[in-house]
């Protein structure tokens, strides 16, 4: 019991500053990006969810998907909540469980959109999300269809 109360308090402490300082941007505040030569041009919401929850591990050509989490809190929270229907904490626990079960390593984490774009620029099979306004030629945007 103590364990659950402690976990709740930690989670609350983690989300409290975010909810107070950054207003959640609903809708099109982020975009899904891949390597500019990646043939994937569009993904459904379900496919996006499957990829970022580790349920789809390969691209259609068979190459392993490299997940890259954007540590930009606003984008990250906006992405997890609107796209994955999870809080960042829940997503963190989710991936820890996957790691604990030995199924997969934790996704890579980049500190901001630039770091993400830089990484995707050199990693052909990587996928991530960035703020919509940060899109440039380094990466290629993937359209998300409902």
């Amino acid at each position: 019991m103590t364990r659950y109360i402690l976990s709740f308090l930690i989670t609350a402490a983690f989300f409290l500053p975010i909810s107070l300082s950054l207003p959640v941007q609903a809708g099109k505040g982020f975009i899904i990006v891949v390597h500019k030569e990646n043939s994937c041009k569009a993904l459904s919401t379900i496919e996006v969810q499957h990829i970022f929850l580790g349920k789809q591990r390969t691209w259609p050509n068979g190459a392993s998907i490299t997940l890259v989490m954007n540590k930009n809190d606003d984008i990250h929270e906006l992405f997890t909540r609107s796209m994955l229907q999870k809080s960042p904490t829940q997503l963190s626990v989710y991936w820890r469980k996957i790691l604990y079960s030995g199924a997969s390593m934790l996704p890579l984490a980049m500190k901001d959109d630039e770091a993400v774009k830089s990484y995707l620029n050199v990693h052909q099979n990587a996928i991530s999300y960035i703020a919509a306004g940060s899109l440039d030629k380094q990466v290629h945007q993937v359209t998300v269809n409902k």
Partner: peptide, 20 residues
């Protein structure tokens, strides 16, 4: 130090497999 240690992640992943 999990998020910062790939080695630890690998170990945990290995333990997860062994555990299953």
């Amino acid at each position: 130090s999990l998020e910062t240690s790939i080695e630890l992640q690998k170990k945990v992943q290995q333990l997860g497999s062994s555990q299953i």
